[in-house]
């Protein structure tokens, strides 16, 4: 009987499948990001500046609501310059977020954008955004962080209002840790 050989083969195959599925677990991470980006799941917007252009759709207007949230124990005062704008799809608009470091320590922040409804995220094109970079701010300082965006003319008609939210996180410890390690 070559049973022993067969058993060893089943064992090897099982282990390979196990290892592959472990890898698959990790592969879900980039896979998920791609799906999110394509389908706009979870309101994630692109992390790089938008390059393209779009036709202008004069026939309708869309309300854009700006929102800000402080994540964790972030001590800055952080808010949009205007709370909302009425925009024409395809046209480029500019606004800004204001931040003020209320402590005496120098801190680094990262703003994380999120759009609602989620599927509108792919149509919210940011030409310039402070969220593309980390934002250092010395203790007691304030800053105006510009945002240039355009709502795509492809935005489904059913969407009459888009919310753009930024959550500001304190990442000073992470950044300091990295530079110290270097």
């Amino acid at each position: 009987m070559s049973n022993e050989a067969n058993i060893q083969r089943t064992l090897r195959r099982g282990l390979v499948v196990g290892v592959l599925m472990f890898g698959f677990g990790f592969a879900l991470v980039p896979l998920y990001d791609i799906i999110c980006e394509v389908a706009g799941i979870n309101g994630k917007t692109s992390t790089t500046a938008y390059q393209g252009a779009s036709v202008v759709d004069e026939s309708r207007e869309v309300r854009v609501i700006f929102m800000s949230v402080n994540g964790g124990s972030m001590p800055w005062r952080f808010r949009p310059e205007t709370t909302e704008m009425t925009v024409t799809p395809g046209k480029v608009y500019e606004t800004a977020y204001l931040a003020e470091n209320m402590t005496s320590r120098d801190l680094v922040a990262q703003a994380v954008p999120s759009v609602s409804p989620g599927y509108a995220a792919v149509h919210m094109n940011k030409i310039e955004c402070f969220c593309f970079e980390q934002q250092p701010l010395a203790g007691g300082e304030d800053t105006r962080m510009p945002l240039r965006f355009m709502v795509d003319a492809d935005l489904p008609d059913s969407v009459r209002a888009i919310t753009l939210n930024y959550t500001l996180f304190d990442i000073t410890d992470k950044v300091v840790g990295e530079t110290a390690a270097r």
């Binding site: 979870n42 309101g43 994540g71 964790g72 994380v112 759009v115 609602s116 919310t163 939210n165 959550t167």
Partner: peptide, 11 residues
Amino acid sequence: KKDAIPGFVNE
């Protein structure tokens, strides 16, 4: 009923 998720906005 909607989840409130840090870093993400739901409506």
